[in-house]
């Protein structure tokens, strides 16, 4: 079949402006997008730059967008993308600095962020003889997380990265999970502190886009939530988040439901005058519309006593 590839181009040695090149390629029915690209580079245009390594779905190196859908060039069958028209658009992933053509900056996008979570086990140097005895259930969970092939699709789907490129992102935070929940790691509390740093777990909006985009079913969003839950249990170290979560929990615990006015005040910190002043315009606007909830005037729900009991039991459980 004859396919026209319309490929994103950018040459850092010329004007660096993005453009597109069209290539008409004869391919067989079974061909993948990578087959097409290799053929183009080999026979038609040797200036075209794209990455690929394993060429069969193991490694994530050839991640790109095919007809705007992020996937792997090596497993994307051309026939699956040409049902409506024999044209295929190829672009680099979104929201990532492009170096040349389909080659984008993996370092800035993902590798440097992974390095930022100190992605190595701190082993017990004193252990000598034999392996650590550990249940397979714990190991199976880590194996699942480590089936990640660093393809970047979770980061590409992330809702936060488009507004803040410095957010660590789901790939790096999922890597952090692998150490937070590895019983062999001796870094202990330090692990959570690393994950809780600015641009870390508390900047995640837990929108589940990452989980939806992960081709391996690793569920990065749930992994981030697990780290947060663990931090909640042992004590959140990010002060503002700690204030917010403590206030939230206290109001649900005491009355069964959320006291939003109190939450707003306590999140800023009751002694943080500057922070509280900042709330004033919003509060004034809300008040003018008759919708600002009045803090601490918060009646208990029926059943609140029972909820408090559950709460206390849950808190004991998680310690």
């Amino acid at each position: 079949m004859q396919i026209t590839f319309k490929v994103y181009r950018k040459d850092p040695e010329k004007d660096g402006k993005p453009g597109r090149s069209n290539y008409s390629v004869e391919l067989d029915e079974e061909a993948t997008v990578l087959d097409g690209l290799l053929k183009i580079r080999d026979e038609m245009d040797d200036t075209l730059a794209f990455r690929a390594s394993c060429a069969r779905g193991y490694c994530g190196e050839c991640t790109m967008r095919v007809n705007y859908k992020a996937c792997f060039a090596c497993t994307a069958k051309v026939s699956a993308f040409t049902k409506k028209s024999p044209e295929i658009l190829l672009d680099p992933l979104r929201n990532i600095p492009v170096i040349k053509d389909l080659v984008f900056d993996w370092d800035a996008f993902m590798w440097n962020k992974i390095t930022a979570v100190k992605p190595w086990l701190e082993p017990d140097e004193s252990s000598t003889n034999g392996e650590n005895l550990l249940p397979d259930s714990t190991m199976a969970d880590l194996r699942k997380v480590m089936s990640c092939y660093y393809c970047g699709l979770c980061d590409e789907g992330c809702t936060v990265l488009p507004v803040d490129f410095d957010f660590l992102g789901p790939a790096a935070l999922t890597k952090a999970y692998r150490f937070v929940f590895d019983p062999r790691d001796k870094a202990g509390r330090e692990r959570l502190k690393i994950a809780e740093k600015p641009k870390g777990i508390w900047d995640c909006v837990h929108c589940f886009e990452a989980s939806e985009h992960c081709p391996r079913g690793i569920a990065p969003t749930e992994r981030i939530i697990s780290i947060r839950d663990k931090a909640f249990k042992v004590g959140i170290t990010n002060e503002k988040v700690a204030r917010h979560h403590t206030s939230f929990a206290a109001s649900v615990k005491e009355s069964g439901w959320l006291d939003e006015g109190r939450l707003a005040l306590e999140s800023e910190g009751l002694t943080n005058i500057k922070g509280l002043m900042k709330l004033l315009p919003t509060a004034a606007r809300a008040m003018a519309r008759g919708k600002a909830p009045i803090p601490y005037l918060h009646p208990k729900r029926p059943g609140a006593e029972q909820i408090k009991k559950i709460f206390e039991k849950g808190e004991r459980e998680k310690k």
Partner: peptide
């Protein structure tokens, strides 16, 4: 191989928790 386990490979385990 034991060194590799100590530094973090989550090997499949036997019922006793040893490397399967």
């Amino acid at each position: 191989v034991i060194w590799l386990e100590h530094v973090g490979v989550p090997f499949n385990r036997s019922a006793e928790g040893r490397i399967d």
